[in-house]
Design a protein around this nucleic acid. Sequence first.
DNA 1: ACCGTCATGTAATCGGTTACATGATTCT
DNA 2: AGAATCATGTAACCGATTACATGACGGT
Lengths: 168, 168
Amino acid sequence: MIQLTQTSYVVLGLVARAGEATPYDLKQVVSATIGGFFSIPHSQLYAEPERLARAGYLSERRERTGRRRKHYSVTGKGREALRDWLRTPTDELYELRDPGLLKLAFGADPKMLAGTQLAAHERRLQELRDLASVLEAAGAPEEQRLVADAGVGHAREYIRFWKRVAGP
Amino acid sequence: MIQLTQTSYVVLGLVARAGEATPYDLKQVVSATIGGFFSIPHSQLYAEPERLARAGYLSERRERTGRRRKHYSVTGKGREALRDWLRTPTDELYELRDPGLLKLAFGADPKMLAGTQLAAHERRLQELRDLASVLEAAGAPEEQRLVADAGVGHAREYIRFWKRVAGP
DNA sequence: ACCGTCATGTAATCGGTTACATGATTCT
DNA sequence: AGAATCATGTAACCGATTACATGACGGT
C-alpha cells in the first residue's frame, strides 16, 4: 500500500525495540544510536509514525489528559514487515553525495576545500570515537559497535583523502 | 529567492561548462562524470533547469521546429552564484545513510549482509577504476581524477569493513 | 515495415525540510 | 519571577521520485 522507506524501517525498528514509544522518545534514540550516519529531523518522527499507523504497521494510543502524547507500538503487520526487511540482504548502495567532492568536481580550489573539510571530518571522527567508547563501556551489542566502527573507518578515509589533496 | 540545492549547482556547473545544453545533454554528462557519487534522475534534469530559468539563473531558448528542445545557458546571475559557491569552502558533511549499515544496526545477520554488500561494493570499485583509467587516458583535469580517486578509496574502505564483518 | 532502444518530455504524488508555535521544566 | 532550554507538535512548501507517454532513429 504505502511505500516503506528507510525512515519507515528506522521507526519500525526503534519502536519495536522500545515496545512503546512517543515521537520524542524516538528522537532521543535516533541521535544516540544511528545519528552519526542517518539522522532524521524531529518533525519526521511525528509524521512518519502517523503514516505507518494509518497503514496498519503501528498502533497508536493517545494520552487522554495532560500533553496528550501519542504512544506507538508495532502491530503484527509491522513486525512482519520489519522481519522481512531484516532478513533480506541488499545490494543497494548509497551514494556519497558529498558537498566537498561536488565542489571539487566543479573546479573549486582543492587546497581551499581541503582545510575546511579536513577539520570537519576530524571533528566527526572524534565524535564517532567517543560514541564507540561509550558503546563499548555500555556493553552495547556487537552490531552497534560495528556500525560505529564503519563510521570511524569512513572518517579516516576522508581524512586520508583530503590530506592528500592538501598536499605535502 | 529560490533555494539553490546541490542539484542546482550541478546543473549550473554543467551548463556553464557546456556553454549551452539541453536536459538530455545534462543527463549524459551527469552519468559520465559525477554519476558515481551523485546521480540525478532525468526528470529532475528537466525540472531543475526550468526552476533555475524562472529564477533568472539560466536562460532558455526553445527550438521552433521539430522536437522543440529547450537549450539552456547560464546568465550573469547564474555565473555569479556558481562562482560564489565554488569559492566558499564547506564544512558540511554528508551522511552515509547506507542501507546495509542500517540493517546491520537493527540486527540483521551480519554475515548474510556481508556477502551481498561485498559483491556490490566490489562491482562499484571496478566501475570506478574503469572510470579512473578512462579519465587518465583522456587526460582529464586533475579534479576529475581526484574525485574518482575518492570514490575508489571509499569503495575500498567499505570492502575492508564488510570483509571484517564476514569474518575469517 | 517493424522492433527495439534512445531521446524527450509531463504529471502526480509524497517524503522531507523549514518555519512557526506553545507547554513544561529547570536554573539563577 | 523571569529566562533559558527542553519537549512537543502542526503547517506549508518544495524538491525528488515514480510513472506514464510519445517521437525519432538505427538495424534486420
